[in-house]
Structures are given as structure tokens and as C-alpha cells.
Design a protein around this nucleic acid. Structure first.
Lengths: 351, 351
DNA sequence: GTGAAAGCGCTAACAC
DNA sequence: GTGTTAGCGCTTTCAC
């Protein structure tokens, strides 16, 4: 705690009988330095455990090597996955991370968007080299003009890439998993198994990702000549809790689906729990397919069939794109990663 | 992408016909400014969307408001929990986060420790106001002298708190969940249920947290006059995979325990899966108790009995302690949070 | 190969 | 109330 007085380039320079410029040169390998003086300087650096002040350096170089990540809730298992991909790729390129979790303690989404705004400002002030945004307002089907503009403005000042989201009407650099295709994969899988009575559960109608999933579901149903029953289109959440609620609703109905396509794995887990408690066997009595392929999906009993949104890959892709943007100030505006159907144990032909 | 030329206090000052000092004053509310001039300045700030450069500010104020977090693997569900607590508390105090994930892609722990060293340096250079370390080398039963010294040195320069770990022989600021107590709680619970043949599975002998858990287990067994069989003391991992391995080993033995205390929830999940596939009912044929209480524990089928290490609370505690350290440069050196037994569905009396 | 000095953008004495 | 100015610690021309 007793903060030591920090050593600076001047201290090193003085003791080495050289100028700060020379010290800087050896620090950055930015120009040839006579071997003997270089050695003396290096020695001093080690002796004093000299750590160049990154703030000062960044201030003059106008590069921080930091990239800011804005996400809605690190506690949602989907995000650590993409963060890991992001991290791995970005680190290899020398970047370091600024984590901005916008989760609101009271679950108020207005508070969340406010927090996003704050963080956007903070990141700008901190002079990050790039920003990646995932979740939150960029998943809104109809974001407010202010929310959109804010992001647009930010992206004019610092390279920004969106993950799995967009700003309707504004082309942005983004990398995304094709959610519609994923939903089609899921639905078709169920249909191929012989299901005709398929429900969709989860998500929020106000969110574009939900809309895309529903769209994929509806399209695939129709393409196969199957009816979409709107009472089987249950939305209102992405959580385990909401999954439980959905299943309870379904349990009340006299006509029940033989399979449920859940908006994400968490919902599927909730559904499965309630189904189980109600005495239904999964998949014998009810087939279930999730979405996202969070780590736990492979470990539930039975193991959850799902579609992988390739969080890790998406994360890497984002880091890569951001790096392009930062260095070459250009990049393909879009990277689409294709989801993958992961067949495990919760889907089987209907009785 | 087209980076706009940034506006500075000088620009604002010039246009407002005042000095930069005055601009700074309204920015920081650090001295009274005549209402009319303040208004003019504020107006200009809005007009140009002026964002003060945090690097410059921090350089001169010698405070960054950033705290660095070093953790082993954000993908392990225990960490997001403590990160969330940390975040929530730290944010309320105006701090912002630097995330350093030291996970090594190839699973090489040497690489991980190296990464820790790198990040320690980076954080120092970035002039973070505080550092929190969780996992990694601070969980080693016998860390190398260099690893220890490095952390010691760092902690001399910037307030540092360790979460759930320590440096043997060196008092450090730390907040931790009492793992031994947790292990006692778990073991006693099993014993109270009537189990006598209790195995312990998971962890690494080289890690202090494992040792503490084992110690709690052994002590409780002995205190109850129960034998600890060393062939039922299985270690070698904290993952679902290792849990599967442990259960397979147990399955080979002619004498099997009626209950298993798993070193963490992930292991318990692995054990449960293999047990299930082997036709064993949990908890009827085999009681299982986990450790950590990761979010998933409440959602498995059956729901996992476990002991909560209060990750969120620990995180908050760490943020709090760090803040004390940063502002008052002192704090209680230790905060111990007491674990809690969470009885769910995987434990029951033996047949 | 090396040094002097002018920034980078902000804060904080210290004057007035 | 407000301005001047000297830093904060580093990089980077431009000379030599």
C-alpha cells in the first residue's frame, strides 16, 4: 500500500547520463542505440523495475491498445463464451480489455440502456482504440432514435463493431450468427423427426433476435405445410424462470405440442424442469430443442439438443474485424457465421 | 471510422473567451464559476460533444478510476458471479474495469502463470488504482518464490486484494469464502443423512482450495468416527470431464460409496451424468453434493445440493475492501464470508 | 547515435 | 471569479 515513488524515464536517463529520448528509444526500439548505452539503460530499467507510464505514452502516441466491450450481463453463460473468443484473438494482437457490464440490478431495461450510454462515453474518454457492443439496445427491434444516434456518433469517433445485433436502417460493422438460419435448422430438425405440433417458447417480441428466430420457425413450419398456432407462440423471457412459466402455460392447455423450440438454452432448461416435475419424459413425451449451445447444454440430463450460435467464433471474428478497422481503417462490413445444429438427447420422434 | 479531430479544453476555452482553467473548473466543479460563463462553457461542451481526454486527466491527477481484475477463466461459471458482485459494488463507487483473463488456450498452467505476470505488469503500466486477483497462482499450495514475490511487489505499488486465495507466509489483503467450513458443512450434511461411506472427488492436491476442502472433509469424517478411505479420495480436476472420470473410477471398484462430496459443482455434474448412464439413481442410489453453487446447480435435474461460496458477496466484499485501500489506504486485512449449505435434491439418506 | 525541446490534453497552484 | 503557467511522463521531430 505504501505507494513507492514511481521511477520515470528521467530518472533512468539521468543515472545513465543520456537524454530521455535515448531511453525512449530503447524502450520502444524506435531507433538504433549504441550497444553499450543500451545495455546500461536496460540494466537501470531492471534495477529500478521501471514501468513506463502507459497513460503518458498513450497520451502522446494517441493509441491505447485498449478495446472496450459493452455487454448486458456477464452472468448469462452465452457472453463469457464470446468474450473468451474476443479475448483470445485480441490478446494475440496486443490489445487489452475494458469490460462494461450494463446489467441493471433491478432488471429495469431503461436503466440498462442508460448504463450503455454512460459506458459509451466513458470508453470514448478513456480513448479506447475500438469498441465492441453485444446485446442490449442493438438487439431492439425498434430502438429509439437517440439510442441509435448515440452509437452512430460513437462509431464515427472510434472503430466499433456490433456482435449479433444491428441498428435498423444504419449499416454498421458487425459480425453475427445467422439466427434465422439457426431457427430454420432447429425447426426443420423437429419436423424431420416427424413432429407436426411444434411450439415456440421464449424471447421478447421487441427484440430483433427473437423476431428472427420466430421468423425462421414460422417460415420453416409454413414451408412444410404445418400450421403455426399462435397460442403456442409463447414469449416473454430468456431465462430459466420464464421457461418454467412457459411450460406451465402449455400444461394448462388441452392441446399440447409434441415438441418445443426454445428461444435459448436457458428457457429450454426451465421448460425441461417443469415438464419433468409434471411427469413428462423428455424426449419421449416432449421433444425439446434449445438455442445458443451454452456450456451447460452438453451436461444436462438428458443432454440438450440445440443450435450453436458459435459464440466463441463470433467473438474472434469481432476482434479480428476490429483490428482491421483500427489498423487499416477498413474491413468487410459484415461477417456472418453460420450456426450449427447440435443433436443430442432431447429430441426424438413423437410417440 | 473517419476519426474526427478531437475537441480539447483549449478549443472550448478559446471559443468561450476564457482560459482552460475555467473550463477545467466547470468540468470538475472544482471552484465557483460565474453563472453566465459556466453556461456558455456548458453550451459549447454540448455543441461540440466535448469529451475530456481521460488519459490526460489521469496523467495529471494520478488517479485513473480503473481497477484491474485478474482471473483464470471467465468461462468457468463461478467467476462471472464474483465479477458481477465486484462490478456492481465498484461501479457504484465510480470505478471502471480492466478484465484480464489468463486462461491458456492449450491448458498449460505454466502459460497461465506467465500470463498473470504479463497482466500484472500491464496493469501497473496502465496505472490502475487497484488490482484484484482471483484464482491462478494464489490458489497454489506451493507457489514459487518468484510468483509470490511478483505479487508482493505489485501490492507495494498499488492496492491489491486477493479473492479466495493467499500467498503462503505473506499476509495480504484478502476476502475469501471459508472453504474448510464449507467442506465441513457438506460432509456433515451427508453424515447427518446417515451416510457413512462418503467419497471425495475433484480438485488438485497442489491447490490450497482443494486442500482446504479435503481437510474439512477429513476432519468432519474423523470427528464423526468415520473412516476416510484413500481410494475414495479422488482428485485431478475441477471440470465436468474430470467428474465423469472420477465416477467411472468409482464404478470399477467393488466397494462403492453411498455419497460423494464433489470438489465443485462442475465435477458433481460430471459424476451425475456418468452415474445416470450407469443406471444409478441420484439421490436414491447415490447422494451427491457439489460446491460453489454455480447458477446451473439450481437447474439440473435433479437439482444439485451444494454449498454456496457466495461468489457475488465475495466480489462485493473485494470491491469494498479495495475502495477502502485506495481511499483511506487501509482496511481490515481479511474478510471472511461464510459459506452456506444449499440443500436441494441430490442428497437423501442411503438405502 | 544522441540531445533539446515541443508537444499530447488536462489539472492545480498561484497570482490577480 | 478568472488567467498564467508549470507540471503529469512519455514520444518525436529536428538538429547536430
Amino acid at each position: 500500500m505504501t505507494t513507492l515513488k514511481p521511477v520515470t524515464v528521467y530518472d533512468i536517463a539521468r543515472e545513465a547520463n543520456v537524454s530521455v529520448a535515448t531511453v525512449s528509444r530503447v524502450l520502444n526500439n524506435t531507433a538504433p542505440v549504441k550497444k553499450s548505452t543500451r545495455e546500461k539503460i536496460v540494466e537501470l530499467i531492471n534495477k529500478y523495475q521501471f514501468q513506463p507510464n502507459a497513460l503518458a505514452r498513450s497520451l502522446s502516441k494517441k493509441v491505447t491498445g485498449m478495446i472496450g466491450v459493452i455487454l448486458p450481463d456477464i452472468t448469462n453463460p452465452f457472453f463469457p463464451e464470446v468474450l473468451a473468443g474476443l479475448e483470445q484473438e485480441a490478446r494475440s494482437k496486443g490489445y487489452t480489455f475494458f469490460l462494461c457490464d450494463t446489467v441493471s440490478t433491478n432488471g429495469d431495461s431503461k436503466e440498462q440502456y442508460e448504463r450503455e450510454s454512460q459506458y459509451l462515453n466513458i470508453l470514448l474518454e478513456k480513448q479506447v482504440d475500438g469498441i465492441v457492443i453485444i446485446g442490449g439496445r442493438i438487439n431492439l427491434a425498434r430502438p429509439t432514435k437517440e439510442h441509435v444516434n448515440e452509437v452512430i456518433e460513437v462509431s464515427k469517433r472510434v472503430p466499433t463493431v456490433l456482435i449479433n445485433g444491428s441498428l435498423p436502417g444504419h449499416p454498421m460493422n458487425r459480425v453475427f450468427a445467422d439466427e434465422r438460419e439457426g431457427a430454420e435448422l432447429a425447426t426443420q430438425h423437429l419436423i424431420d423427426l416427424g413432429h407436426r405440433d411444434i411450439a415456440f417458447a421464449g424471447g421478447y417480441r421487441g427484440m430483433s433476435n427473437t423476431l428472427q428466430r420466430i421468423q425462421g420457425y414460422v417460415r420453416t413450419m409454413e414451408r412444410n405445410g404445418l400450421a403455426v398456432r399462435k397460442e403456442w407462440l409463447l414469449d416473454g423471457g430468456f431465462s430459466v424462470e420464464s421457461g418454467k412459466r412457459f411450460m406451465n402455460q402449455l400444461l394448462q392447455m388441452e392441446e399440447r405440442p409434441t415438441a418445443i423450440f426454445c428461444a435459448n438454452d436457458l428457457v429450454a432448461i426451465g421448460v425441461m424442469k417443469v415438464a419433468y416435475k409434471a411427469g413428462l419424459q423428455v424426449p419421449q413425451d416432449l421433444s425439446l430443442i434449445g438455442f445458443d449451445d451454452i456450456p451447460y447444454a452438453a451436461n444436462s440430463i438428458p443432454e440438450l439438443t440445440t443450435v450453436s450460435l458459435k459464440g466463441y467464433d463470433v467473438g474472434r471474428g469481432a476482434a479480428d474485424m476490429l483490428h482491421q478497422l483500427i489498423t487499416k481503417s477498413k474491413a468487410s462490413k459484415n461477417t456472418r457465421v453460420r450456426p450449427e445444429l447440435i443433436i443430442r438427447e432431447t429430441t426424438t420422434p413423437p410417440r
